Amino acid sequence: MTKSYEAINWNEIEDTIDKATWEKLTEQFWLDTRIPLSNDLDDWRKMTDQEHYLVGHVFGGLTLLDTLQSQDGMSSLKQSTRTQHELAVLNNIEFMESVHAKSYSSIFETLHTPAEINEIFDWTNTNEFLQYKANRINQIYQEGTQLQRKVASVFLETFLFYSGFYTPLWYLGHNKMNNVAEIIKLILRDESVHGTYIGYKFQLGFNELGEDEQAELKMWLYELLLDLYSNEEKYTKLLYDEIGWTESVLTFLRYNANKALMNLGQDPLFPDGAEDVNPIVMNGISTTTSNHDFFSQVGNGYRLGQVEAMSDDDYNID
């Protein structure tokens, strides 16, 4: 007998966090095509070749990770969901990860020549440190348990992206490349919701495990984080040693690694707090829109209401 197919009913919600997250994500929907990137060309022309190289390759790395998340990450999480509404939320996240990946190509098209773009993608597709973290995460997506896959997703979105995010936030803090930085802030706003929501779903499953299973999973996730951080140190040195930002970027990474652990309901690992991060970058990392309309530069036809990013408190399940 053919199995009955159930229509999703948004009037009967099993988990209110699903509905809240759906509403948050749809309220803050955006597209890169409405950001006037060409307005940054004056800043771009004043920057050095070294800075051009850094910006291009940072965004190349971010493109790879967003591609991984859109093509494999969300599909792996969708294999085991608690509610139909959770599946709908993951579909939304999957689409927006594709928007993120596409946004970097819009930046490339604005700032770089075709030859430079080809070089960036060749570098991205062959760089050993980028490929290591992509393959390490994807292996978990393909072979890990559902809880391990959620850990990998949160580590990717709340930790591994941030070696790349540092650069545009630094320029934003110095009032340069403001439109490029606006795209990054919009992506950050999305990732804030993605990481917190998936971390919440992880916590639900983690709390259902026995003590021995919890201890085993905790050991696994901390070992994974240390492995990824070791690789990220090498990647950061490769990108930032020449420009002299390496130590500041690594502090930023450790701070965000702790945030990823907190999303998963785990204790921070590193001593670095917000006060240790470059204050110019911390100012840029704010993903709220309480004092800024992200779309003010593109006309009232695309204005969105003021939307604040979800905080960890929104997913407090103690």
Rank of each mutant, 00 (worst) to 15 (best):
K3E: 08
E6N: 11
E12Q: 14
E12F: 07
E12P: 02
D15I: 13
D15S: 11
A20Q: 14
T21C: 11
K24R: 12
E27A: 14
S38T: 13
N39L: 13
K46N: 11
E51V: 07
L54H: 07
H57R: 14
V58R: 05
L65S: 13
S70P: 00
S70L: 00
Q71F: 13
L77Q: 07
T83N: 10
E86F: 03
I107L: 04
F108G: 09
E109K: 03
H112A: 15
E116M: 06
E116D: 11
W123S: 09
N125L: 15
T126V: 12
T126S: 15
I137R: 02
A152K: 00
A152L: 04
V154K: 01
L160F: 03
G164K: 03
F165L: 14
T167V: 15
L169S: 03
N178T: 15
I184S: 03
K185N: 10
K185W: 04
T196L: 08
T196F: 02
Q203L: 00
G205C: 08
E213V: 08
M219I: 12
W220Q: 12
S230C: 13
K237E: 05
K237M: 07
K237T: 09
E242H: 12
R254Q: 12
L261Q: 00
Q266P: 07
F270S: 04
A274C: 06
V281P: 00
I285K: 08
S290E: 10
H292W: 02
D293C: 14
Y302E: 08
S311M: 12
D314F: 13
